[in-house]
Nucleic acid binder design. Structure first.
Length: 734
DNA sequence: AGCACGCCGACT
DNA sequence: GTCGGCGTGCTC
């Protein structure tokens, strides 16, 4: 009988005791006894009893946390047969936990997110030529022995396939003892990428950029480079050279991408260059595959992983380079449980382990711009588009001077441009970052506005589905005919445009054109892929799309991009609003114009003099960035502001004080600490004077956080004051 | 986080 | 009379 309870059958007093991080919000590692003879070292992945269940934990550093009641001590159940997390990895996880003020157990869990991968994959049965000739030789048997006669091991299906015979031939030979059974390590998930498979011949600025980066890689050690250049300037080719060089050094590479950019297209490009696909890591990976990727990254079989932000926590055997593509993308932020920005934490991981990082973006974040100016990051600028790709000419349409006709949202100028484009049998893209038909519905009789009963944001009409939906919480109901307030029938009026409404307007003006709406709420990934393919094949004339057209996909036949409302998002109170708008619109307009034909972008705006609009049409963003940097500095926002932590206690102020004291002692980064009681915290936040990561301490902290958030969301005028992330550049604290 | 224990309201 | 809500406490 197994008994791990303390006491009579508990661990002997002489047993070794080690700290173990368990997946629980405890502030420290727990202590466990090591059964005699169990091979356990810091970093070992183990299974331990925790309360009524068995959980996965990691043996951590340092002496045992002395003050545990020995009666409570329980024993490690088993050690998994996988490589222990190495020292730099443990330092990294500790650092992230301390910086983000997250329980270390949670951070460690992010590195162990592949439960069944912890034991080795089962061996695969294989066959090896035993040296004995079969009694009777047949043509099929001959073919098999021609291949396998050199004594190498084959899997049954592999050998059958390679020699063009059926597996029964192999079975027959095996039965006679011609083959002996051997057990082979499971085949690697992906082939080894070859750094010299199809080397691009780089020239000009690309060559210079690549040389500069290779220089850093050859020197070794930590460094950060930022490659910046417009869409199509060849950034990918440049960082592929960095990857090749790292592979030649025999080290592993991680490419971080926003999830949505992890497309088949990207993987193919990688394969074209390196002759094999990289390992993939993202949220909707099949469990089995996920486990394999985890393990093979840990054992070093996989040399390159391309992954979304969580791939940063994979336990590579010998990581030598991280690429962060689309470095500015907000998708690198995780905003639940452990709050982190994978771009910044990648820099930290590289610093700790001593290898280079390459950040890549056509529209770098303000933080990275500042780091370049400060000399912390090396800026590598790629000035031109190469080959036949030409950026579209961008022009503004001043909506005050060229208003749309009544009830419409497209100005005559834009409509005319669309008309000319489809006459030439080219494609036009209309971009509006708003799903549905109309963002607000109201009753013309009593003025009632349709609001979400759960979170009070406006309900968005989706005419295709006959529903009104809340984009905040997902609530939906069938579109009503009558006003629920005054009961009047057919006097509900849609206010403002969504993509569906733009499609309606387009169809009215161009009834013969083939229009297509691309929106994340219309069908799944599969449908989207088919639609993108159809567009690439010229099966649509006018595409109307939301944000999802901005990323990952190119539209080779597109020669006109119309931005329906370039001002959306400029005035939402987010200090990053202008930066985001600039980045988004740059990206959308960059989707077009790869045909070699002349292409255009038209941006409808009410604020033609706005710095974002000026930066877009002039093609020179430097003035815009200078202004953003100055604004951030003035407002003490990231990357200049000090790190502020607000401690809200769900219990008592005394408890919050204790947390603050601990924080001052243990946090790796100096920060200002404000202590607020449960009553005052929401008020302080609502006044909107601070923008900081909201930290709520105390037992029921998750409830408390929900409460504070709800207060913020419901404060009718002040919802803009919510901001739940610290983006202070960790580099400056290292 | 999970999970158990424990105490009060509406149901077979 | 019980089932089940979530408030509180505990896990080496």
């Amino acid at each position: 009988m197994k008994d791990d309870s303390p006491g009579l059958f508990g661990p002997l007093p002489s047993s070794r005791v080690v700290p173990v991080l368990v997946p629980m919000p405890a502030p420290v590692a727990y202590s466990y006894a090591v059964p005699d003879g169990m091979p356990v070292e810091p970093g070992s992945v183990v299974q331990v009893p925790l309360g009524p269940r068995q959980v996965i934990g990691v043996v951590w550093d340092g002496p045992e946390a002395g003050s545990v009641d020995p009666k409570k001590l329980r024993s490690i159940t088993k050690v998994f047969d996988c490589p222990p997390l190495d020292g730099p990895m443990r330092t990294f996880l500790d650092w992230v936990a301390a910086y983000t003020l997250s329980p270390p157990g949670y951070v460690a869990r992010m590195a162990l997110r592949a439960p069944a991968a912890l034991d080795p994959e089962p061996m695969v049965e294989g066959f090896r030529f035993s040296g004995m000739e079969p009694e009777r030789m047949t043509p099929a048997r001959r073919k098999v022995l021609d291949l396998a006669g050199d004594g190498l091991s084959w899997t049954k299906s592999g050998l059958a396939h390679a020699s063009g015979v059926s597996t029964s031939v192999i079975d027959g030979l095996a039965a006679q003892g011609v083959f002996e059974t051997v057990f082979l390590p499971p085949p690697p998930l992906v082939a080894r990428p070859d750094p010299d498979f199809a080397e691009h011949r780089l020239a000009g600025p690309q060559k210079e950029a690549a040389d500069e980066i290779l220089d850093g890689i050859r020197k070794g050690g930590f460094s950060v480079a930022l490659i910046d250049g417009v869409t199509g300037s060849g950034k990918t080719e440049v960082y592929f050279e960095a990857i090749a060089e790292t592979l030649r050094q025999g080290r592993q590479v991680l490419i971080l991408l926003p999830e949505i950019a992890l497309t088949a297209n990207f993987l193919e490009r990688f394969q074209d260059r390196f002759g094999a696909k990289p390992g993939e890591w993202h949220s909707d990976l099949a469990t089995r595959t996920r486990e394999k990727v985890w393990r093979q990254a840990a054992t070093g079989e996989i040399r390159v992983v391309a992954g979304a932000r969580s791939a940063l926590f994979l336990p590579f055997e010998d990581l030598g380079l991280i690429i962060v593509d689309e470095e500015h993308d907000p998708a690198f932020k995780q905003e639940d449980r452990v709050f982190y920005n994978a771009r910044d934490m990648a820099v930290v991981r590289a610093r700790i382990a001593g290898f280079p990082v390459v950040l890549v973006s056509a529209t770098p974040s303000v933080e990275s711009q500042v780091n370049c100016q400060a000399g912390r990051y090396k800026r590598i600028h790629l000035p031109t588009r190469f080959a036949d790709a030409a950026l579209p000419d961008l022009h503004l349409i001043d909506m005050r001077r060229h208003p749309p006709e009544r009830g419409g949202f497209l100005s005559p100028l834009l409509l005319r441009a669309v008309g000319r484009t489809i006459e030439r049998k080219e494609q036009a893209l209309l971009f509006l970052n708003r799903r549905g038909y109309a963002p607000l519905t109201l009753c013309r009789v009593c003025g009632h506005r349709f609001q979400c009963p759960q979170c009070s944001s406006w309900l968005v009409e989706h005419r295709f589905r006959g529903q009104i939906q809340c984009h905040q919480c997902g609530y939906s109901e069938p579109t009503p005919q009558a006003c629920p307030e005054c009961g009047t029938l057919d006097h509900l009026v849609a206010c403002g445009p969504g993509v569906e409404r733009i499609a309606e307007e387009v169809e009215k003006h161009f009834p013969d054109a083939r229009t297509l709406v691309l929106s994340s709420d219309l069908g799944g990934v599969k449908r989207l892929r088919l639609e993108l393919e159809a567009i690439a094949n010229g099966e649509a004339d006018i595409v109307i799309g939301t944000q999802l057209v901005a990323k990952g996909h190119n539209f080779p036949l597109m020669t006109l991009v119309g931005i329906v409302d370039a001002d959306i998002g400029l005035a939402n109170g987010d200090p990053r609003a202008a930066e985001r708008t600039f980045q988004l619109l740059s990206q959308v307009t960059g989707r077009a114009g790869r045909t070699g034909r002349k292409s255009h972008g038209l941006l409808q705006t009410f604020q033609p003099m706005h710095p974002v609009m000026q930066a877009l049409v002039s093609g020179d963003a430097s003035a815009f960035y200078e202004r953003e940097i100055a604004e951030r500095e003035r407002a003490a926002l990231p990357p200049f502001g000090r790190l502020v932590s607000i401690i809200v206690s769900a219990d008592s102020r005394a408890e919050a004080e204790t947390h603050a004291r601990q924080l001052r002692q243990t946090a790796p980064v100096e920060r200002d600490i404000a202590i607020l009681g449960p009553a005052e915290a929401p008020l302080a936040l609502i006044r909107g004077r601070h923008r900081f990561r909201l930290l709520v301490h105390g037992r029921r902290s998750s409830d408390m956080q929900g409460f504070v958030r709800a207060m913020l969301a419901n404060g009718p005028k002040e919802r803009r004051s919510i901001q739940v992330q610290v983006d202070v550049d960790p580099q400056s604290f290292l």
